[in-house]
Amino acid sequence: MITIKRTNSDDSHFRELVQQLDADLKIRDGDEHAFYAQFNKTATIKYALVAYDGDVPAGSGAIRELNPDTMEVKRMFVLPAYRGKGIASAMLQMLETWSVELGYKKCVLETGKNQPEAIALYKKSNYKIIPNYGQYQSMTNSVCFEKELAV
């Protein structure tokens, strides 16, 4: 059975999953990996999730404040053996719920064109493609999304 735990960046399972995510992104992003990596530091993430299959950490996700109305979804990852089981969708929904509980009105995120699984997840979850924001504005590999939250 899959369970999802709220935590933060001090959680050792969250940190282990992020290391595996970073290894995957290094391959997918190629020469652009160093650019993206600078925006994905996890030392001060207050709002993180770890999904478990029994006691095995299977996935992670996080949110951080972008501005007073908006949370940014970060560090979404599911181990390959657990993909296709709805874990990412469940974590994303839980991050949205957490954002609403904290008083935020929308979520935004950035993903890469080399992550078709992520793009499909966000489209399926009613995220809309928006112009690239912030540090991603000039990145042709980036795809940015936004979702208004039901508050």
Results as ranks from 00 to 15, higher is better:
Ala48His: 08
Phe77Met: 11
Met91Asn: 03
Ala51Arg: 02
Gly61Leu: 04
Met76Val: 15
Ser60Met: 10
Leu49Ile: 09
Ser89Trp: 04
Asn67Ser: 15
Ala90Met: 11
Pro80Glu: 08
Ala34Thr: 05
Asp31Leu: 08
Ile87Arg: 05
Asp31Ala: 14
Val50Gly: 03
Glu72Met: 07
Lys85Ser: 01
Thr97Gly: 11
Glu101Lys: 15
Gly30Ser: 09
Tyr52Gln: 01
Leu95Gly: 03
Ala43Met: 12
Glu72Phe: 05
Ala88Pro: 09
Met71Gln: 13
Ser60Pro: 07
Glu65Arg: 15
Pro57His: 08
Gly30Arg: 05
Val50Pro: 01
Thr42Pro: 05
Asp69Tyr: 14
Met94Tyr: 03
Thr44Asp: 14
Val50Arg: 02
Val50Trp: 01
Ala51Leu: 02
Thr97Gln: 13
Ala58Ile: 00
Ser89Phe: 13
Arg75Asn: 13
Met94Gly: 05
Pro80Leu: 06
His33Tyr: 13
Asp29Cys: 05
Tyr36Lys: 06
Ile63Val: 15
Leu92Trp: 01
Ala37Ile: 04
Arg75His: 13
Leu79Gln: 13
Gly86Gln: 03
Tyr36Asn: 05
Leu66Phe: 15
Ala58Gly: 02
Ala62Val: 08
Leu49Trp: 04
Ile87Trp: 03
Glu32Thr: 12
Gln93Gly: 15
Glu96Tyr: 02
Val56Phe: 01
Ser60Asn: 08
Pro68Leu: 13
Asp31Tyr: 02
Ala81Ile: 09
Glu101Asn: 15
Ala51Asp: 01
Gly86Lys: 01
Ala48Gly: 12
Thr44Arg: 10
Asp53Tyr: 03
Gly61Glu: 04
Gly59Met: 03
Asp29Gln: 09
Trp98Arg: 12
Thr97Ser: 12
Glu96Ile: 00
Lys41Glu: 14
Asn67Lys: 10
Pro68Ile: 12
Leu95Arg: 00
Lys41Gly: 15
Arg64Ile: 14
Tyr52Ala: 00
Tyr52Met: 01
Asn67Leu: 10
Asp53Gly: 05
Lys74His: 13
Lys85Asp: 00
Thr42Tyr: 13
Ala37Gly: 04
Asp69Arg: 15
Phe39Pro: 02
Ile87Gln: 04
Ile45Met: 06
Gly84Phe: 09
Pro57Ser: 08
Leu79His: 12
Gly61Ser: 10
Val56Lys: 01
Glu72Tyr: 04
Asn40Asp: 05
Val73Pro: 08
Lys41Ala: 14
Gly59Trp: 01
Ala81Asn: 13
Thr42Lys: 07
Ser89Cys: 11
Ile45Asp: 02
Phe39Tyr: 10
Lys85Gln: 10
Glu96Gly: 02
Tyr52Asp: 00
Leu49Met: 10
Met91Ile: 07
Leu49Thr: 06
Glu96Lys: 08
Phe35Met: 07
Ser60Thr: 11
Ala88Lys: 07
Lys85His: 10
Met91Leu: 09
Asp29Pro: 00
Trp98Phe: 14
Glu72His: 07
Trp98Lys: 13
Tyr82Cys: 06
